[in-house]
Amino acid sequence: MTPRQKRFAAVGLGLLTLGGATALVLNAFQSNLVFFFTPTQVVNGEVPKGRSFRIGGMVEEGSLRREADGLTVHFVVTDTAQRVPVTYKGILPDLFKEGKGAVAQGQLGADGTFIASEVLAKHDENYMPPEAAEALAKAKAAGAQSSKTVIVQPQ
């Protein structure tokens, strides 16, 4: 090998080693790098006990309830498999909606209710004009209707 090829080989080999080492480190830290835990993990007890953590998922449709003081809210966070009730006192972000994603930081109470100190909205990666969203919702509703009829038909 010429000195030039040797230098390129050294650079390549160095990068390869570094990449491998990084992959191993990231793999080892896998569980520590998550921003939030899912309701399933909460129910299974895979969350840190006695200290604050974040829980993330979908705000269940029809679960949002506001107390008389106008500030305290109750809602349920779900990942469709498990549900965790959340209580929060404070102002919710604008994009916080039922059926949309949310991340709450706080502690798990003794009764299994999550007492949140901060609630963040998690929006998705879809961008479209409102008319398109409406059309999509309509098509989805129509799709749900037709699938229902399929189930009904055999009876």
């Binding site: 921003f35 939030f36 899912t38 990666e125 961008y127 398109a132």
Partner: peptide, 23 residues
């Protein structure tokens, strides 16, 4: 790879873009 608050990619090499064409 991880649960993040940041949303996923709207534009990727492998899937159709998840945004309106004009955007």
């Amino acid at each position: 790879w991880w649960n993040t608050l940041h949303q996923g990619a709207s534009v990727s090499m492998t899937a159709a873009p998840k945004m309106a064409t004009i955007m």
